[in-house]
Computed example of a mutant assay.
Amino acid sequence: MSQERQAALKGNPITLVGPELKPGDSAPDFTLNKNLLETSSLKDFAGKVKLISVVPSIDTGVCDAQTRRFNEEASKLGDNVVIITVSADLPMAQARWCAAAGVDRVVLLSDYKENSFGKAYGVFIKEVHLDMRAIFVLDTNDKITYVEVLKEMTEHPDYESAISAAKQLI
């Protein structure tokens, strides 16, 4: 039985599918696309602190700003932290956007095939098959230490709290 809860898109109700993850939970594994043929999973980032920034679509204003902000912060966090941006955009669209935006410190991964990340992390939006804006911070043992799943898709996350949560693990 799938778990569902409500959120909003411009004030209109949307349904999030999957578990409501909390600090202390073990992070679910994932398989996301780096490009059309290659995939990446949680184990590819073993031993690192992971800040996972989830955006509905890289081609929207808030998602663009969110990804650019974390790209700027990445160099300040050092080599023991990886920032991963997950969206349901096609990998080619992600690569095009990164090239145009000059984003080179954030790892962009695509949840387009099966939305398995969204469903495992409880951020899959049933009505539009995208992932809800969210931030997850995982320690080096893949325990979740910080979670923010926005209630309104068009709002910005709390960047400072997410970055602070990652810094506490370094």
Rank of each mutant, 00 (worst) to 15 (best):
A74E: 03
A74H: 03
A74V: 08
S75F: 08
K76Y: 03
K76D: 12
L77I: 09
L77W: 09
L77T: 09
G78T: 05
G78M: 04
G78P: 05
G78A: 04
D79K: 06
N80K: 10
N80R: 07
V81A: 06
V81F: 05
I83N: 03
I83Q: 04
I84V: 08
I84F: 03
T85R: 08
S87R: 10
S87M: 10
S87H: 11
A88H: 08
A88V: 08
D89H: 00
D89R: 13
L90R: 03
L90D: 09
L90I: 10
P91K: 00
M92D: 13
A93M: 02
Q94Y: 02
R96V: 03
R96H: 03
R96L: 11
R96I: 06
W97F: 11
C98I: 12
A99R: 15
A99W: 11
A99M: 14
A99P: 13
A100I: 15
A101Q: 15
G102K: 00
G102H: 01
G102I: 07
R105V: 01
R105S: 13
V107T: 09
L108K: 02
L108G: 11
L109A: 02
L109R: 00
S110I: 08
D111C: 02
D111E: 02
Y112F: 14
Y112I: 05
K113F: 11
K113S: 12
K113Q: 14
K113Y: 15
E114D: 11
E114V: 09
N115V: 13
S116H: 14
G118W: 04
